[in-house]
Design a protein around this nucleic acid. Structure first.
Length: 279
DNA sequence: CCTGCTACCTGATGGC
DNA sequence: TGCCATCAGGTAGCAG
């Protein structure tokens, strides 16, 4: 699960399930999920500890323990699955016929939290503190936090010469925006993804800021209605297509001006945009 | 420092 | 039907 709104919805759903619960046992079923850390580093850090809170910044989610943290990153396809017991988890996880692929399972005093990713891109890491996790410390401003202000955003834009699309994907500048919502935000702001960030007029920077805030807010609303149901291994976010205006619409008419949507490659990813009304 | 490219995995899809 | 190429909501690591 991918971008900030989805991860935020997961964080909110996860809190009542795990906060104040103690981790009795960690099962690393597929060691690739902890690479390059060792499975034993994770188990040593987490076992016996109480989960004090569930935190999120950008697309990173982490369990704040009494001593240390466990970070979860879902990359493209990772997800959480909730099991009522370890026995139930072992009954269905990683069985040929089940299709449920659990890489790491946290056995709590009540229930089991599974980190699942059939593609094995997702990662589960342990650190002694939040400050000890380089990926988190290097994140830029979280795009749904109060710190994501127009003036801060304008300063960031002015300090870079990269194309807008690539800038938005750089998690060390602003954290949480991925391929879909960067395309969507640029379409709403009527800005060409290839424009250099430091070429924006103040009014354009404000437009982009406003577009990002509203796109992410609408996506979060969509992700919360209905909220994720971790008990269903098949759960996934529904209805996101409905709110998308430009992503994955190559050759189809622009919903604003009717001209065909273009697909180009930027930073090795697909960018969808309307070259007629995004300037 | 900054930027661009590749690797990492698996599964779905579409053309031939 | 099978085979191959391409694509996927992300990021770490490395070379220049």
């Amino acid at each position: 699960m991918p971008e900030l709104p989805e991860v935020e919805a997961v964080a909110r759903t996860l809190r009542p399930l795990v906060e104040r619960r103690r981790i009795s046992c960690v099962h690393v079923l597929h060691a690739i999920a902890t690479k390059p850390q060792s499975p034993s580093h994770l188990t040593r850090t987490a076992e016996g500890q109480r989960i004090q809170s569930v935190r999120r910044k950008g697309k990173y989610l982490w369990l704040q323990l009494e001593l240390g943290i466990v970070t979860l990153h879902f990359k493209l396809d990772g997800q959480l699955i909730w099991f009522p017991s370890a026995k139930k988890m072992f009954d269905v996880a990683n069985q040929e016929e089940s299709g449920v692929h659990v890489d790491v399972a946290f056995e709590l005093d009540k229930g089991v939290l599974g980190f699942a990713d059939g593609r094995h891109f997702g990662r589960v890491y342990a650190y002694e503190s939040e400050e000890a996790c380089p990926a988190i410390t290097q994140l830029g401003v979280d795009t749904i936090s109060p710190d994501f202000t127009v003036s801060h955003f304008a300063e960031l834009l002015a300090s870079s010469r990269r194309p807008l699309k690539e800038f938005l994907l750089d998690q060390t500048r602003v954290a949480g925006i991925g391929n879909i919502y960067s395309c969507e935000s640029l379409w709403h702001a009527r800005l060409d993804p290839r424009r250099r960030t430091n070429s924006l007029e103040p009014v354009e920077a404000r437009r982009l800021h406003k577009a990002i805030v509203s796109v992410l807010a609408r996506a979060l609303e969509c992700c919360l209605h209905p909220p994720p149901d971790f008990r269903d291994p098949e759960w996934w976010f529904q209805g996101l297509e409905k709110i998308l205006r430009v992503y994955d619409r190559g050759e189809k008419p622009c919903r604003r001006c009717g001209n065909p949507i273009k697909r180009i490659a930027q930073a090795g990813r697909s960018t969808y945009f309307c070259s007629h009304c995004q300037k």
